[in-house]
Design a binder for these strands. Structure first.
Length: 257
DNA sequence: ATGTCAAGAAAATCTTGA
C-alpha cells in the first residue's frame, strides 16, 4: 500500500499536474494540502474519474485538506484539529483506510515573526501534540502526514544559516516538532534514510529547484504499530520540474498490507 | 529587500499569503 502526501498549492489551478502525477505514480491513498478552494469547488468529478474517492475540508482562497483513496470512500474519523472552537481554518482531516488511521494536516506557516501568525503556529502545534497523544493510545496503526512547515534539522535545508530566523526553522518550532516526536512518533524518511539530503519543497524564487536549494518540510510520522510495516519511502522529485507545478514535491511511503 | 505564483475583489491592476 502506497500512501502519499502532496501540498498541491491550489487543487484547481494545479489540477492537470495532480491528475498526471496520480496517473503516473498510482498512489493508493493521497493526502492533499493547500486546496485553496471552498468545498463546492473541489474537483470531485475529475478525481473520481482518476479512480479515487475523496473527503475534503475546503476553504476559500487558503488552506484546505483532502484525503483520496482507491479503496472506496475514506471513513472519516476527525474533521478539524480539536482544542480551539474559534479556529475556522481548514487544516486537519483524518480517516481510517484499511485499518490504518491517517491524519492529513497543513500546519500553519507562521511567518512573519514575531506576530499573531507565529503565535497561531505555536498554539496549533501544542493542540497537535495534545491531540496526537490520543492517537498514540489507539490500538491500530496511525500515520500523521502533511505539510508541517517545519525544517527538523540542519541537513533538511540547503543553507541553515539563512533560515534561523524563519518560522519554518526557528528554535521554538523545531523544539515543538521534537516534542511531538518524543511522544512516540517516528519520522519515516529519517528511519530509512538517516543522513540523506531529501527535499520536499523548492521556492518559486531564484530558480530554487534548479539550484537544488530546497527544504524538507513535508513529513510522515508513524506510531509504534505502524513502524514495523514501513517498507519504503521517497519523493517524486521530478514533479517539481513540470509546468505550472506546485512548489512542493509529492512524498510517499510504502507499507506492508 | 529581493524574487514567483494564484486567487479574489473588482474591473486592470492591486492585495494577500506563501
Amino acid at each position: 500500500m502506497k500512501i502519499a502526501t502532496y501540498n498541491v498549492n491550489g487543487v484547481n489551478g494545479r489540477l492537470p499536474v495532480l491528475l498526471r502525477w496520480l496517473a503516473e505514480t498510482k498512489p493508493d491513498v493521497v493526502c492533499l494540502q493547500e486546496l485553496k478552494a471552498p468545498d463546492e469547488k473541489f474537483p470531485e468529478a475529475a478525481i473520481l474519474e482518476a479512480g479515487y474517492q475523496a473527503i475534503w475540508q475546503g476553504q476559500k482562497s487558503w488552506n484546505g485538506v483532502a484525503i483520496l483513496s482507491r479503496f472506496g470512500k475514506p471513513e472519516e474519523t476527525q474533521r478539524g484539529l480539536p482544542g480551539d472552537d474559534e479556529d475556522i481554518q481548514s487544516r486537519y482531516l483524518e480517516a481510517t483506510i484499511n485499518g490504518i488511521t491517517i491524519g492529513c494536516l497543513y500546519l500553519p506557516n507562521g511567518n512573519p515573526l514575531p506576530g499573531p501568525k507565529f503565535d497561531y503556529k505555536l498554539a496549533w502545534f501544542e493542540r497537535l501534540i495534545t491531540y496526537s497523544g490520543k492517537l498514540l493510545k489507539a490500538e491500530n496503526p496511525v500515520i500523521i502526514t502533511g505539510d508541517f512547515n517545519v525544517i527538523p534539522t540542519e541537513i533538511d535545508v540547503y543553507k541553515p544559516e539563512r533560515w534561523v530566523n524563519d518560522a519554518l526553522f526557528r528554535t521554538e518550532v523545531r523544539e515543538a516538532f521534537n516534542k511531538l516526536i518524543d511522544k512516540g512518533w517516528t519520522d519515516a524518511i529519517r528511519k530509512l534514510y538517516p543522513e540523506e539530503v531529501i527535499y520536499t519543497f523548492f521556492d518559486y524564487f531564484r530558480n530554487a529547484y534548479g539550484r537544488n536549494a530546497g527544504l524538507r518540510i513535508d513529513h510522515f510520522l508513524l506510531n509504534p504499530q505502524m513502524v514495523p510495516r514501513l517498507n519504503n519511502a521517497g519523493t517524486d522529485h521530478n514533479v517539481r520540474g513540470w509546468e505550472k507545478t506546485s512548489d512542493h514535491v509529492p512524498v510517499w511511503i510504502e507499507v506492508a498490507d
